[in-house]
Amino acid sequence: MNQRVMITAGGSGIGLAIAKAFADTGAKVHICDVSERALAEVAAKYPRISATHLDVTDEEAIRNWFDVAMGDLEGLDVLINNAGTKGPTGYVEDIKIDEWNACLRVCLDAQFLCARSAAPIMKRQQSGSIINISSNAGLFGYGLRTPYAAAKWAVIGFTKSLAVELGPYNVRANAVCPGTVEGARVGEVARAEAASRGISIDSVQQEYVQGQSIKRFVQPEEVADMCLFLASPASKMVTGQAIAVDGHTETFHI
């Protein structure tokens, strides 16, 4: 599609699946990631994907990333705010304010910083698509993960507000809400929850899928497919939406 695409946390997991999917369409893709190791692996395996090492909570680093990327891409068709962290796991009375703030800085503040840099570029072009990765935790209450759930709910409100602001410029904003996605992150989440509840990791993971109509984990590529759609002309009147890719979550557990 010859699109120009920027993706946060594109070095592994969902972000890498998204980066590969866009690169396979012929898009020019520029990612960032906090992991130098992940970026080195991307450079070795996917030389078509440009990359910058940075922490998405660093305001100046985000500005510099956009400057570097614009020199490479000469415009921006798609921004995908994918960076996130699982945050602390525990009952609300046991969560420290520093843990709360750290989770929101990565899951929410970083999306604001990137959208703030992308909006003027897309408005000048009179085109563009901002895709914010939320979660089905942004659609349901999530016990033991209150900072994460709060951030992901806020992402949806932020996305809908962006859609209002940017619509007159033919720029769209949507949120994608993945369910339990196969990969290293779900293992970390399940281990932390199992420890907090005093049950086995297998029991936690079984609960995740039992609450879904389609009872399996989401594949990273399935999230990437939704991003491709939301960046394509096929979705040109889709904006301000929070779209789940989760096999239909019927109930959430604690």
Results as ranks from 00 to 15, higher is better:
73 L>F: 00
128 G>M: 09
118 A>W: 01
59 E>T: 11
157 G>C: 06
24 D>W: 14
112 F>R: 01
163 A>N: 13
190 A>G: 07
1 M>L: 12
213 S>C: 09
202 D>H: 10
79 L>W: 05
227 C>G: 03
69 A>Y: 04
40 A>K: 15
221 E>F: 15
141 G>R: 09
86 K>G: 13
215 K>F: 15
102 A>Q: 12
171 V>R: 02
210 Q>S: 10
240 G>K: 09
166 L>C: 00
52 T>K: 06
154 A>T: 10
32 C>R: 01
10 G>V: 11
241 Q>G: 04
234 A>T: 15
15 G>I: 01
64 N>D: 10
157 G>M: 12
111 Q>N: 12
75 G>H: 07
238 V>F: 12
103 C>M: 10
81 N>H: 07
75 G>T: 03
137 A>W: 01
116 R>H: 14
186 V>I: 08
154 A>P: 01
34 V>K: 08
243 I>N: 06
127 S>I: 11
51 A>E: 14
217 F>I: 06
219 Q>T: 04
16 L>Y: 14
159 T>L: 08
227 C>M: 07
110 A>W: 02
94 D>W: 08
121 I>D: 05
248 H>Y: 10
5 V>P: 13
51 A>F: 09
182 E>M: 13
106 V>F: 06
129 S>I: 05
215 K>L: 06
221 E>I: 13
7 I>A: 03
17 A>M: 07
246 D>E: 05
9 A>R: 03
100 W>Y: 04
116 R>D: 12
198 G>T: 06
140 F>A: 11
87 G>S: 15
157 G>D: 05
133 I>C: 03
59 E>A: 11
8 T>Y: 11
81 N>I: 06
7 I>Q: 00
80 I>N: 02
44 A>D: 09
101 N>S: 12
193 E>W: 11
210 Q>C: 06
176 V>M: 14
176 V>P: 09
53 H>E: 08
189 V>H: 03
115 A>L: 03
165 E>Y: 00
103 C>W: 08
237 M>C: 15
21 A>Q: 05
49 I>W: 00
56 V>G: 00
132 N>Q: 06
225 D>M: 14
51 A>I: 13
133 I>G: 02
47 P>L: 09
74 E>Y: 10
182 E>F: 12
132 N>Y: 00
135 S>Q: 01
15 G>H: 01
169 Y>W: 13
238 V>H: 04
201 I>K: 11
85 T>N: 05
127 S>P: 07
165 E>S: 13
103 C>K: 10
221 E>L: 14
135 S>W: 01
19 A>N: 07
47 P>W: 14
152 K>S: 02
117 S>G: 14
75 G>P: 08
47 P>H: 13
57 T>V: 09
171 V>P: 02
79 L>H: 03
164 V>I: 11
230 L>P: 00
121 I>Y: 04
22 F>W: 11
128 G>D: 04
238 V>W: 02
120 P>H: 06
69 A>V: 06
43 A>R: 15
8 T>C: 02
229 F>L: 14
236 K>Y: 12
52 T>Y: 05
116 R>P: 12
70 M>D: 14
67 D>H: 13
70 M>P: 13
117 S>R: 15
218 V>L: 00
112 F>L: 04
33 D>K: 10
176 V>E: 05
88 P>S: 10
165 E>G: 13
204 V>E: 00
95 I>A: 04
196 S>F: 05
225 D>G: 13
206 Q>D: 15
243 I>Y: 11
238 V>N: 00
109 D>Q: 14
212 Q>V: 05
95 I>Q: 01
250 E>H: 15
82 N>C: 11
254 I>G: 12
